[in-house]
Nucleic acid binder design. Structure first.
Lengths: 253, 253
DNA sequence: CGTAAAATTGATCTGTCTCAACGTGGGTGG
DNA sequence: CCACCCACGTTGAGACAGATCAATTTTACG
């Protein structure tokens, strides 16, 4: 158990994200900062909670990538969502008896465990409650967009779409610049996310590289032509519901 | 605008569904009955709300099948969810400026429009609020299961899985018997749901028929071997979170 | 440096798509 | 009430995206 100080963690990604929806008061920010003070370091490929477990707390990711996933009867894994810094898992999950999926880390993560009482404390603040409510709706919309992505787009478009989405989401928490970010994900994990074989993910990435759209090496992604990649993949950020609050995605066209 | 009487509508599917989670008081049921008194008939293939529109009300389906869908840049449609009697669209959607997808009918429907004030009225009742909260979590879990379905299963398993899910969901509202229900959906719509071409859906259905698993003709589905179809498709109803509340799905094995 | 995980390559196979035609059944107007 | 008609379902042939299997190379790291 690590107790992080403000020196270790200059900016709280949850605050950054929620303020993309609307501004929070100093008191609200202090509460969120206090609740995320006690985090723990979790290694890569570790489960935070497993399918079948009773949901007892909510997880907040401060650093690293985690995911929601299911294991199918044949042993294959499907990843249904990425959780990046600032992301909370479902706040309302306490009402359910058991988890219907697992949550695990992809890279090493800094994770905050929020027991029910602390979630309540957050929700009692109207501005925070509203921002979390927005955040939950965006999570749902993202899931729907993923469904369309897998159901209706080619392998190349699918991967490109994911890279565009992560660019926008990571910019929100200061973890992406205009055109690049750290993506601590293997090609195998990408495959389990997109419903593609690892071999095919590799070929798709090579094609995106050959087309001069991206550079992806040593977990570092550079999108060489952001507008082109968005257009190619049919990426329309409307489902992230950032409205006109900030200029978080590059101009298109 | 039709005003339905209790004679026209013997049982309110929303009440049936919510009571699968936990019992409601008479007063709660009266409120729900009152709020669903004024419904309107909507023809097949009509939109209730379109992508880009501001969400002004919530829809409750009393009869018929509706769906959430998106139209892609190339003109193709992807259906992301089915709404069957008793289903409500997202209660919290008011906070968003615009819809990121459309909602439209598949068959002719009886639909209740609930303006914000009426949603508030429901949510003020603790038992109803809890049941609706559960219902919203189940909707999210269903979306995740659909993602896995499309991402990780073969065409035949996919279609079979959907048929199993609808069996359980429709039983909940008294619209399926042990092994059969009305499915007012074309093969083309099934294809847009499963990410398959219409031609392939046709061949998949033929194979399921040939294997003696189903009969599907004139919008009437009979599942000849329920346990086998569930096993074949990898259907595990845990994501519907019916727990031990009622025996809503057949014993397996 | 050695080792295991991850990325890459090549060859082959197959599920699903596309295109194009034909059958069919239920609703409607004459 | 019949005949037409159109949406829907069905069939066949050929093409292709992506899977699978089996190495091999590269990278990260202890």
């Amino acid at each position: 158990m690590t107790v992080e100080t403000s020196a270790d963690m200059p900016v709280n990604p949850l605050i950054l994200k929620l303020e993309a929806f609307h501004a929070l008061s100093e008191a609200d920010k202090e509460l969120l900062t206090r609740l995320s003070t006690t985090s723990r370091t979790v290694g890569p490929r570790e489960d935070l909670i497993r399918e079948g477990d009773p949901p007892e707390r909510v997880y907040l990711i401060l650093e690293g990538f985690a995911c929601r996933y299911k294991i199918l009867p044949d042993g294959s894994r499907h990843i249904m969502a990425y959780m990046v810094p600032g992301d909370l898992c479902d706040l309302h999950v306490f009402i359910l008896k058991t988890m219907d999926h697992s949550i695990g880390t992809l890279s090493a993560c800094e994770v905050v465990d929020l027991p029910r009482a602390q979630v309540m404390e957050m929700i009692e603040r109207p501005a925070i409650a509203r921002a979390l409510w927005w955040s939950g709706l965006v999570d749902g919309a993202t899931l729907r967009e993923w469904l369309v992505n897998i159901g209706a787009r080619s392998a190349e478009e699918r991967v490109a779409h994911l890279l565009c989405e992560l660019l926008v989401r990571l910019r929100l928490v200061g973890l992406a610049t205009e055109d690049r970010y750290e993506l601590p994900i293997t090609q195998n994990e990408l495959g389990d996310t997109m419903g593609l074989s690892t071999v095919h993910v590799n070929r798709v990435l090579q094609r995106l590289r050959a087309e001069g759209l991206i550079i992806f090496k040593s977990q570092k992604l550079v999108i060489l032509k952001v507008a082109e990649l968005m257009a190619f993949s049919g990426f329309n950020p409307n489902y992230l519901h950032l409205e006109s609050r900030r200029t978080l995605y590059a101009a298109r066209g």
